[in-house]
């Protein structure tokens, strides 16, 4: 194993206690340091189960998961793992423990037994990184959904994680809250080199990840760059997922006979391609 491997899942299967069928079966996934990996899948695809396996909340029924080289099956390593792989959940209200923002950010540090003098600067820094310093003394229930999620991120950040796993962290937010949270995570990925596992069913949020992993029926169905994954419009639709509107439009134009190239994702690319094709058809004499 290369030592910049942050997440390693080998042939992982997981079956819930009362379930007949496994929620995940034979999943293989390697994530290197600094990668931004989006995991796409519809509800019940197994993507949330995967998230919880990566933070030792669940232990695989079969196969193994290692976080920064720590095997999640070893009980004595569990705190090492959770400190390194911080997790953000879907419901902003249900992950804030304290009644004051800064005290909530402190929660993880308190659990780790960080000395108080060291805690204060770490909290201040974490809050300033997510641009919530202003709200350090506010009550969480007065904040917007996006702000609450940023507090949750600060709580993780203070623990100085190597990996952040966001399990549908934007599903309950409005468009501006979604942008706020995604921008914050992207910034952490780019500027601090934190590895990000971004679990979502919003195709738009996966569009500028380094890599997209599509999960369905408990298995990894696709794994590639956004361009590779999203240009397979029919396959994505089969898996009940959205495709970027431009990729869908390109596909339809192609089906109608227009020579549009593969791999179009953005409006700019589409404009260029349509312009080019229309000019060619005019000047083909």
């Amino acid at each position: 194993m290369r030592n910049d491997t942050h997440i390693l899942a080998e042939n992982v299967s997981y079956t819930y206690d009362d379930a007949a069928a496994p929620a995940l079966s034979h999943v293989n996934l390697t994530v290197r340091q600094g990668e931004f990996v989006a995991v796409l899948g519809h509800n019940g695809s197994g993507k949330s189960t995967l998230a919880k396996l990566l933070n030792a909340l669940y232990v695989p029924t079969d196969g193994c998961v290692a976080v920064c080289g720590f095997d999640t099956r070893k009980e004595e390593l569990v705190w090492e793992i959770r400190q390194r792989a911080g997790m953000i959940f879907q419901n902003p209200d249900n992950q804030i423990v304290a009644t004051i923002v800064k005290e909530d950010v402190a929660f993880g540090l308190e659990n780790l037994g960080v000395p108080t003098e060291e805690m204060i600067p770490r909290i201040e820094k974490a809050l300033s990184v997510v641009r919530m310093s202003k709200y350090a003394d506010s009550a969480p229930h007065m904040l917007s959904g996006g702000q609450k999620q940023r507090v949750a991120i600060a709580g993780i950040l203070a623990m100085e994680p190597a990996v952040i796993i966001a399990d549908e962290a934007t599903a309950m937010l409005d468009p501006s809250g979604r942008k706020e949270v995604l921008d914050t995570i992207r910034m952490l990925n780019r500027q601090k080199g934190i590895t990000v596992i971004w679990i979502t069913h919003f195709m738009e949020e996966a569009a500028d990840a380094d890599r997209v992993v599509v999960v369905s029926d408990g298995e990894v169905q696709m794994d590639g760059t956004p361009r590779e994954v999203f240009s397979q419009v029919d396959r994505m639709r089969q898996l009940h997922l959205d495709v970027p509107p431009m990729a869908a439009l390109a596909e339809e134009l192609r089906k109608a006979g227009m020579p549009i190239r593969d791999g179009i994702l953005t409006i700019e690319e589409m404009v260029q391609e349509v312009e080019k094709t229309l000019c060619q058809s005019k000047s083909a004499t």
Partner: peptide, 10 residues
């Protein structure tokens, strides 16, 4: 949910 979030924060 909260129990899980607390556990994940050690």
């Amino acid at each position: 949910d909260l129990a899980m979030a607390m556990e994940s924060r050690c």
